[in-house]
Design a binder for these strands. Structure first.
Length: 226
DNA sequence: CCAGACGTTGTT
DNA sequence: GTCTGG
DNA sequence: CCAGACGTTGTT
DNA sequence: GTCTGG
């Protein structure tokens, strides 16, 4: 799955990788957690590429309160086109979530107790960025406040991830960014076909400090190998 | 017809 | 909003 | 995802 | 054990 990640730029690299037509103010962040504001790449009114902050955890339009958002931080690629909570967003509100890498936890037996060993997974070239496939929604709170939310789509683990965890975020190929972001793209099958596991070559995974386990901390050391 | 759900993950 | 279960 | 809370009353 | 918050 994908429940924690990092985005530390640099800003110029993010702009370049995602062909952004505007500026943004975000990061660097080494411990991005659900229910907080995350940076999302999405089409603007004239299909220009914008980057804005959205609350991580999808709140469907019919929700009565925000609490469902904490549960809908991921959507399964296998069912995203049909599930009531996601299908409207899959049809019309697709986005990309930029990341320098993501964390996964592997349960490890240490003596009599099980600890959660965090790993950081990123492109081999540390200057490179992942683009996760995501969805957005707009929810109107009972108080009349519009809340923009998003989630990250998951898929099976690739060969690199398998020993750590059986799911991983969908990482889009740069060539597919345009098709994924186009709100007028009617080819649901073609879109679904983009949601497989990314190739393992070009990616690396390594153990990192357990201080990242708490969502409250934030430090560049979290993405360094231990 | 109305009421109630609508999700993923990990663990067992 | 829309589908499923009763 | 993991960490941390999980409760009421009366008094200050 | 289960839910909430970050």
């Amino acid at each position: 799955m994908c429940g924690r990640y990092a985005l530390y730029g640099p800003t110029s690299r993010i702009r370049e990788q995602f062909d952004l037509d505007d500026g943004f103010d975000f990061g660097p962040r080494y411990n991005i957690a659900p229910t907080t504001k995350v940076l999302v790449v999405h089409p603007g009114q004239h299909c220009e590429r914008l980057a804005s902050t959205y609350r991580w955890g999808l709140i469907p339009s019919w929700a009565k309160d925000v609490t469902i958002g904490a549960k809908l931080i991921n959507a399964r690629s296998e069912t995203v086109a049909e599930k009531p909570a996601f299908r409207a967003a899959f049809r019309r509100w697709r986005c990309i979530v930029p990341a320098n890498g993501f964390y996964e936890w592997k349960p490890v037996q240490e003596g009599s107790r099980t600890i959660k060993q965090p790993y950081f997974i990123r492109p081999q070239d540390d200057g490179d960025l992942f683009g996760f496939a995501g969805l957005t929604e707009r929810w109107m709170s009972p108080e009349g406040q519009e809340v923009h939310t998003c989630c990250i789509i998951t898929t099976d683990a690739n060969a690199l991830m398998m020993p750590i965890h059986d799911r991983m975020p969908v990482i889009l190929a740069p060539n597919d960014y345009g098709a994924w972001l186009d709100p007028g793209n009617p080819d649901a099958d073609g879109l679904r076909a983009l949601l497989g596991p990314a190739a393992a070559d070009g990616m690396i995974a390594y153990k990192v400090c357990r201080a990242v386990n708490s969502s409250r901390g934030d430090s560049p050391t979290f993405v360094e190998p231990v």
